[in-house]
């Protein structure tokens, strides 16, 4: 799909929205797999960005992710999304244990001019690969999730946006006493994504 909407010369707003949405899809799946939010046997191996990735095969989870990511893609195209957050909550205590935050800077001028930007998809995908690699590597320092946990996806949007039917307003679900680590960022030259993770300090659990 991405190849159809972006030329060899560069990248359009639509192509950029698709690339970023795709990154979120793979990124979220990676986090859910790495953090053991769903059992490993409910994932299947695929190859993307020239690397091996895990995608869920759980039908309910698949549906939910498709719903969220397709809506997100729309908002990316409209340049009305500011941030996506994956929140991991402990079901026993209702404490938020981890927040994977992706700040999105949209270049709104791309809405006016349809001329493609000069950045190759290959370069962008290389940058995305580094981010996903780093997400995988964070397992080494993040505290083990020992209790049953569930996740939620929060989307920070522009204020004037109309709330879609299946969506509702939420709180930011901030962690009390957290450590924060900034991860790599990537840019399509239209959308810039800054990644970071905040986690509850293990001595406060």
């Amino acid at each position: 799909v991405v190849k159809m909407t972006s030329t060899l010369k560069g990248i359009t707003l639509k192509g950029s929205a698709e690339l970023v949405a795709e990154f979120f899809s793979f990124g979220i799946n990676s986090i859910l797999y790495q953090r053991g939010i769903y059992p490993p046997e409910t994932f299947g191996r695929v190859t993307h960005y020239d690397m091996s990735l895990q995608l869920t095969t759980d039908p309910k989870l698949k549906n939910y992710l498709t719903d969220v990511v397709s809506q997100l893609k729309e908002w990316l195209f409209e340049c009305t999304v500011q941030r996506l957050v994956l929140v991991i909550t402990c079901l026993e205590t209702n404490d938020v244990l981890e927040r994977w935050q992706f700040d999105i800077e949209c270049d709104k001028s791309a809405k006016e001019s349809s001329a493609p930007r000069e950045k190759s998809i290959k370069t962008i995908q290389d940058e995305i690969r580094s981010v996903i690699r780093q997400i995988t590597a964070t397992v080494t320092f993040l505290p083990l999730l020992e209790t049953p946990c569930a996740f939620d996806l929060l989307v920070y949007t522009d204020k004037d946006l109309v709330v879609p039917e299946k969506w509702e307003e939420s709180g930011p679900q901030i962690i009390t006493q957290s450590e924060e680590v900034r991860l790599r960022s990537f840019t399509t030259s239209i959308h810039k994504v800054n990644s970071m993770v905040a986690y509850k300090r293990s001595d406060s659990m």
Binding site: Q82, L153, Y156, T157, K166, W167, S170
Partner: peptide
Amino acid sequence: TRLLHFKMNP
């Protein structure tokens, strides 16, 4: 900013 999430989230 407005903060949204899917109603039927996991």
